[in-house]
Write a protein that binds this DNA or RNA. Sequence first.
DNA 1: GTAAGGCTTCCAGTAGCTGGAAGGTCAAGA
DNA 2: TCTTGACCTTCCAGCTACTGGAAGCCTTAC
Lengths: 129, 129
Amino acid sequence: MYTIGDAAKATNLPTKTVRYYADIDLVTPSGRSDNGYRLYSDKEINKLIFTRRARSFGFSVQECRELLDLYENRDRSSRDVKAIAVNRIKEIEEKLQELQSLHDELTHLSETCNGDDRPDCPIIRGLAS
Amino acid sequence: MYTIGDAAKATNLPTKTVRYYADIDLVTPSGRSDNGYRLYSDKEINKLIFTRRARSFGFSVQECRELLDLYENRDRSSRDVKAIAVNRIKEIEEKLQELQSLHDELTHLSETCNGDDRPDCPIIRGLAS
DNA sequence: GTAAGGCTTCCAGTAGCTGGAAGGTCAAGA
DNA sequence: TCTTGACCTTCCAGCTACTGGAAGCCTTAC
């Protein structure tokens, strides 16, 4: 059994975040010690690591909730999981495109700017029009 | 002079957002009418449009504040503006790389998943380990 | 005995809005 | 004249996913 600090170390998550996940019932401790300390078993440690990974993959907390359900449920079909992942991939692709065109526009504006002491600035002009 | 609703239409921003920008002193109305309505002149309309564009380019409100200062100040050097833009481009490039590797990893996981009724799922396994 | 470090709860703040409630203002129509 | 609807006002709350801090209890070491 791990106290919250030990769980934090074991999962590479901030203590505050582990407590937060408990508060929102995402990953709840398996129990409490006599003095009221949260106690985590190996099972919860794994769920916390799973959550950290999923979060770093950009899954929202809500999606993590669904994924944890699937992760826990041995009977789940891989189809359910794949649907969530494919959704996420599509979102990432949209965001990539958006960022790319942003990048290109801004780079173009920046390249046409002298970056000197004179006030005439294509970037400002580009943003204004 | 525009009331807040007219300003919203003219700038293609939600009314709530225009009011919010006034609240945080980003773009303040030039005055108030007798009945207390916010009034915007063409100058503020342009600043609102400028802000909308800059926000859509991913500049933070704080950066918009700086850009608006430069936009207003005829004596500003284009160097100052370019510095902000270059900074932003660097951030975008980092985010692009991050998203790209995320995309590749997730796509890989998804491709190795059958997406059928059986519970064995490489995505779940990939997230857990 | 006390100091350090862990734990607890609760409250507030972050960014950038967005939604809603309660109420004032104004023009048009029955 | 009354009322309806569309404006506008302020203020408060909520969204995401934490993060920081205060006040206070518990345990261990010196």
